[in-house]
């Protein structure tokens, strides 16, 4: 594959493939693959958020179980995603369940860590003040803790989203789904142009998602810290992820 020399041609080939109307029609069209990839990643993220956000908020709120979160996030970084995918694939078969489950497992730690760290970073004095003037626990949660925690919380979702998009690509190795299929199809037929086309699409998709989350995060920062300069957006993410 990709012999030295005519390498620029490979990019030309990839772009030609992407621009070819034939690639965008039929059962295995690029548009369909993109939708598949997005829907799959979105569903994983939703499930991970539905579990991880409430759990993380609870841990940050009560301070109980923080050791677990820290161990989980640093441990999760060491676990190779491909290993997790293949073992789930062997155990659960070639359906979509194996990659789905593996991805939820991978997405949980950053979501949990973001929610936990966000809520924990809220000044105790501010919460005490809110309670002292008679805000109910629910009002404290929704009116004080969540808005103030949101930049870090969204940072965790952002790490998880990138992790999921990345690993969803690998998931095509064990289950026929998403943009990874272009890559593995190209690999099988020794068509580097198609592999490259798939790779460029995934990279583009990841960048778009990254930029969207960045925007959401700085909007949340402006709300949580209206006058200071926006929080350095990379902080929450430095802690977790393994593309």
């Amino acid at each position: 594959m990709a012999p030295g020399g005519g390498d620029v041609n490979l990019f030309a080939e990839a772009i030609a493939y992407l621009l070819d109307p034939a690639s965008w029609t039929g059962a295995g069209s690029i548009g369909l693959r993109i939708l598949e990839h997005l829907a799959f990643s979105g569903a994983v993220l939703l499930v991970a958020a539905a579990i991880g956000v409430p759990a993380g908020v609870l841990i940050g709120h009560t301070g109980r179980g923080r050791g677990l979160v820290i161990a989980l996030t640093s441990g999760a970084r060491a676990i190779p995603t491909l290993g997790l995918l293949t073992i789930f694939g062997l155990l659960l078969g070639i359906g979509i369940e194996a990659p789905f489950l593996a991805l939820v497992v991978l997405a949980l730690p950053p979501v949990l860590a973001g929610a936990y760290a966000g809520v924990e970073s809220v000044d105790r004095l501010v919460i005490g003040g809110a309670r002292a003037i008679g805000m109910t626990e629910r009002q404290i949660l929704t009116g004080v803790e969540l808005p103030l925690a949101s930049p870090v919380l969204i940072g965790g979702l952002r790490s998880a989203a990138l992790q999921v998009i990345s690993t969803a690509t690998l998931a095509a190795y064990i289950s026929d789904t998403g943009l990874g299929r272009l890559i593995f199809a190209g690999l099988k037929t020794r068509d580097y142009g198609v592999m490259l086309a798939g790779s460029l699409l995934v990279a583009l998709l990841a960048l778009v998602v990254e930029l969207l989350f960045q925007a959401a995060q700085s909007a949340a920062s402006r709300r949580a810290e209206p006058i200071s300069t926006p929080r350095t957006t990379g902080r929450a993410r430095a802690s977790e992820r393994n593309p």
């Binding site: 594959m1 990709a2 012999p3 030295g4 020399g5 390498d7 620029v8 490979l10 990019f11 990138l162 998009i165 990345s166 690993t167 690509t169 690998l170 990874g180 890559i183 580097y192 592999m195 490259l196 798939g198 790779s199 460029l200 995934v202 990279a203 990841a206 960048l207 998602v209 990254e210 957006t233 990379g234 593309p243």
Partner: peptide
């Protein structure tokens, strides 16, 4: 560097190889 980090690993391998003129493996 932040954007670079957003690019998933497998695609990055495949994009890097032709850029530096070596096989992806």
């Amino acid at each position: 560097t932040g954007l670079l980090y957003a690019i998933p690993s497998l695609p990055l391998f495949i994009i890097v190889a032709p850029l530096i003129g070596v096989p992806v493996r």
